[in-house]
Amino acid sequence: MDAQDDIEDLIARVAIADRAAFRLLYARTSAKLFGVVLRVLDDRAEAEDALQDIYVKIWANADRYRVNGLSPMTWLITIARNHAVDCRRRRPAREAGDPEEAAAVPDGAPGPEFEAMRGADRARLAACFGELEPGHAEAVRRVYLEGETYADLAARFDVPLNTMRTWLRRSLLRLRECLSR
């Protein structure tokens, strides 16, 4: 049984309220998700609270895991990322995307299990980001990992909101076409 099946099996058991499986799932995945949440929030206490909320959601929604057809790690990462972004966007308007603050969070090496799981996909993703116009890959990255909105990006690129929206949509289309090749 590989890591993915293992996590899938644990989610299935959590769906039937298996507490031991929930603890195992937490043991296997919490460091990855905490890393993601810390990256998005860059605030330890806030990230700890967010991680609690995330695992409460995972417990509550495990029975609906199959609905969207995501792989188990993607499902977990998506819940974590979306929740962390919601928290970040709810903050009072401070430090709206300070580049130095973002740079202050180290991006260390991924765990070997994720490296092995996604090695090929990762290279493909990097190659497709590389095909985007300068700045646009960074814009997508900021939206995903820092929760920036079209308004944030428009301010950063110093263009009207509609222009920013059109640009990014074009880049998303290019990205999708490249990733689907």
């Binding site: 990855k32 905490f34 993607t74 260390g108 991924p110 765990g111």
Partner: peptide, 11 residues
């Protein structure tokens, strides 16, 4: 989600 591959796990 592949964008999180480079993020180090933190216990």
């Amino acid at each position: 989600a592949g964008m999180t591959d480079g993020i180090a796990p933190v216990t």
